[in-house]
Design a protein around this nucleic acid. Structure first.
Length: 727
DNA sequence: TTAGGGTTAG
């Protein structure tokens, strides 16, 4: 492993060996590869180099960073007392561990302090959010140089206090301290944070005046500034004008294409880049993974390894995310094993992706093991586990864990709501939403998307309207997810006019919202309008019809009696739209033919089907037979249907309903008995009413409502009242 | 003291 080290050593170039060791130790610390760090430490001891000043400091930092107390003590002994450098390291470590008071005490007790001590303390305090304390020390700092100024300005930017950062920068210029390239990159970031293009341009003037316009870092920051503020042309021009470009410049511009949604161009650029490093690989893998292109992300990861690049933490978390999307459990487990083998600490990013992977593959137990192993969990880890339980219908565990989250955010709430929605616990989903509002947590677009879906499932117009008002107040009405959910909710709740209005006002329309509107119109009896909208979509948008849209189109044709039009759409499904019809499309055609009395054709159509027909297809034909009085065919179809129900439990319900509609009560009873014998449970008929913002559900033969007794008592009272009026 | 990349919900 350390062959390069030895070869350098054999050349007796001690300086190079020290430099290389320092670089390696820094890498192992940053990447949390403590096993590797330990191994290197052993080699350095053998070579008698572990006490060398620069190396010892890096070793100490590595152990402090990973909180290895035994090794820390050993290292402190090596130093033979506490010098300034060690003290500075200890202050930084204490700040990292959140021991602000200890860090300040150590600093205050130091007999002498250099400018590094001051800068470390101030920037460390800022890094960990202790802005006020940092500013007190900043005022006391006797060293007024560009390092301290820049570190403090940077700390303020990191704390999202960019306005204060810019004010401090002005003070620095007034005090006569000249900014350097790092100061400029820092204040450009502040401009990005403030979304202030004008300010950015003023900074650009300063950069030119100070002669930093050809500095690679500064130029890279400018490219990012223009990109983030939507000035794509300026970003590209700045990039093209750069005399010297490095791997960061290329990675930044690569990201530009991804953000513009042009993954192909991004890929082309990536393939042609003169230089790549692990961050470039990490960026492209992450971007493909985020854009839902998981397979490509995994391929890129394999390619990266083949090119002998060492994947870093970011790469691992991105590729695991991609594998979770693909539900590739085995591959994910291999990567997990590999990470453990190389001794990479499971940090929050890798940990959260791993939890997600295991849970998406149905293995919440292993997900939980990973969760329990993460030493310092952040809210994302908690949310991943809550949503993992929710995804696997383990709502009790999800709720239990949710209640333990130390600092919840809106995604925590959304995860629990989504869990309830997933198992159709609609009332609970609404209840969690109410609690979320009461807790003061701000719902976001995802919250509304889920809640509106819940309202749509309950056909609860009142709750839906309430959610709509809240979404309007927060300005989410133009969001595509919220808009789609609103169109669907109003359509499902029977308020199709509201759906129409929202659909019309939506600035951008995607496939899903077109589907919702076409389906909504079709299902609300506006068949002709639905077909007109479908034709409009074909003409005016670039959206290709999908399975669901075509099903709605067939449904609409069936309900307007446009049989030939419907048949022509059905026949063009595969040829024109490239969609293979499924059972539901076939059933829709059978329904269409049966409703118009083309019974023989319908029967022939079923016989010619390449797929096993749904019981519903036969039922549709049977219903046609009854409408048009074709008893011979009805007999044949009923026989067929009773044959099908043997294999498909859903068919029993259908059959018993058909018997019931014909008044054949004995047959109904025998079908029901058969169902009981076979242990088939029919999902009970369910009705509901909405009272004072609460939806009350009632199931047939199942008195689970909490006030069931009272309700039945009142019902009986009404019945006797009615009876007394009748007699 | 600095520029580019990472995890969760819809």
């Amino acid at each position: 492993m350390f062959s390069t080290l030895f070869s350098i050593y054999s050349r007796k170039s001690l300086k190079a060996l020290i430099r290389k060791s320092v670089t390696l130790l820094e890498f192992y610390t940053n990447e949390r590869l403590i096993n590797h760090g330990n191994a290197l430490h052993c080699h350095l001891i053998k070579m008698g180099l572990s006490s060398q000043k620069y190396i010892a400091v890096k070793l100490l930092i590595m152990y402090l960073d990973s909180r290895k107390s035994f090794e820390i003590d050993q290292m402190l002994k090596e130093f033979n007392g506490f010098n300034l450098v060690v003290q500075n390291c200890l202050i930084t470590a204490n700040l990292q561990w959140g021991n602000v008071i200890d860090a300040c005490r150590l600093f205050d007790e130091m007999p002498e302090r250099n400018e590094v001590s001051w800068t470390s303390l101030i920037s460390g305090l800022l890094k960990h959010g202790n802005v006020n304390e940092a500013m007190v020390y900043f005022e006391r700092n006797p060293f007024s140089n560009v390092f301290t100024w820049t570190a403090t300005i940077n700390g303020l930017v990191q704390n999202r206090l960019s306005f204060q950062a810019m004010r401090l920068c002005k003070k620095m210029l007034q005090s006569g301290v000249l900014p350097n390239d790092i100061t400029f990159t820092t204040i450009i970031r502040a401009c990005v944070e403030l979304s202030d293009l004008g300010l950015g341009k003023s900074v650009l003037c300063l950069i030119v005046k100070a002669g930093f316009e050809n500095n690679v870092c500064v130029s890279n920051s400018l490219v990012t500034l223009f990109l983030r503020l939507g000035e794509i042309d300026s970003a590209r021009k700045t990039f093209d004008r750069m005399e010297e470009k490095d791997v960061v410049s290329w990675t930044t511009i690569l990201d530009m294409y991804v953000e513009m949604g042009d993954l192909r161009e991004a890929r082309r650029m990536f393939d042609e880049m003169p230089e790549r490093n692990e961050v470039t690989w990490s960026a492209i893998i992450a971007r493909f993974s985020q854009s839902g292109n998981a397979e490509e992300a995994v391929k890129l990861f394999q390619q990266m390894v083949r090119h002998s690049f060492k994947p870093n933490v970011s790469c691992y978390s991105s590729v695991i995310r991609a594998l979770a999307t693909l539900e590739a459990l085995q591959a994910g487990m291999n990567i997990h094993a590999h990470i453990l083998k190389i001794g990479m600490e499971i940090n929050v990013f890798v940990g959260s992706s791993l939890i997600d992977l295991y849970c998406k593959c149905g293995n919440t137990k292993d997900g939980r093991l990973v969760f329990d192993e993460i030493p310092e969990k952040n809210v994302v880890c908690w949310n991943s586990m809550v949503s993992g339980y929710g995804f696997n219908a383990q709502l009790e565990k999800a709720t239990e864990l949710f209640n333990q989250i130390p600092h919840k955010n809106n995604i925590s709430w959304n995860s629990l709501i989504a869990g309830h929605l997933g198992i159709e616990n609609f009332n609970e989903a609404l209840q969690v939403f109410d609690e979320m509002i009461l807790s003061g947590e701000q719902p976001n677009k995802s919250t509304f998307s889920s809640i509106l879906k819940t309202c749509a499932s309950l056909a609860s117009l009142e709750r839906g309207k309430y959610a709509h008002t809240k979404a309007l107040k927060l300005g989410f009405q133009h969001d595509i997810f919220v808009g789609t959910a609103l169109v669907d909710m109003y359509a499902k709740s029977g308020s199709i006019e509201s759906s129409r209005k929202i659909f019309k006002r939506m600035p951008t329309k995607n496939e899903v919202v077109w589907t919702a509107m076409i389906q909504g119109l079709s299902e609300n009896g506006f068949a002709e309008e639905s077909l007109r909208l479908f034709e409009e979509m074909e003409k005016k948008s670039s959206i290709a019809p999908n399975e669901l849209i075509l099903l709605s189109v067939l449904f609409a044709c069936s309900h307007c009696g446009l049989v030939d039009k419907g048949l022509s759409y059905f026949n063009s499904m595969e040829k024109v739209y490239g969609i293979r019809p499924n059972e539901r499309h076939y059933t829709s055609v059978v329904d269409m033919l049966s409703r118009s009395g083309r019974l023989f054709e319908a029967e022939e159509f079923i016989k010619s089907m390449p797929l096993e027909p749904e019981a519903n297809a036969w039922a549709a034909l049977l219903s046609g037979c009854k409408t048009f009085g074709n008893e011979t065919l009805a007999g044949r179809v009923a026989e067929k249907l009773s044959g099908i129900v043997e294999t498909k439990p859903g068919g029993y319900v259908l059959l018993s309903n058909i018997y019931a509609s014909e008044g054949r009560w004995e047959d109904v009873m025998s079908t029901r008995n058969l169902m009981n014998q076979k242990g088939i449970k029919k999902s009970g008929g369910c009705s509901w009413i909405e009272l004072r913002n609460q939806v009350h559900l009632f199931y047939s033969q199942d008195e689970t409502h909490t006030q069931s007794n009272e309700i039945y008592w009142v019902l009986q009272l009404f019945n006797s009242e009615i009876q007394s009026h009748l007699t």
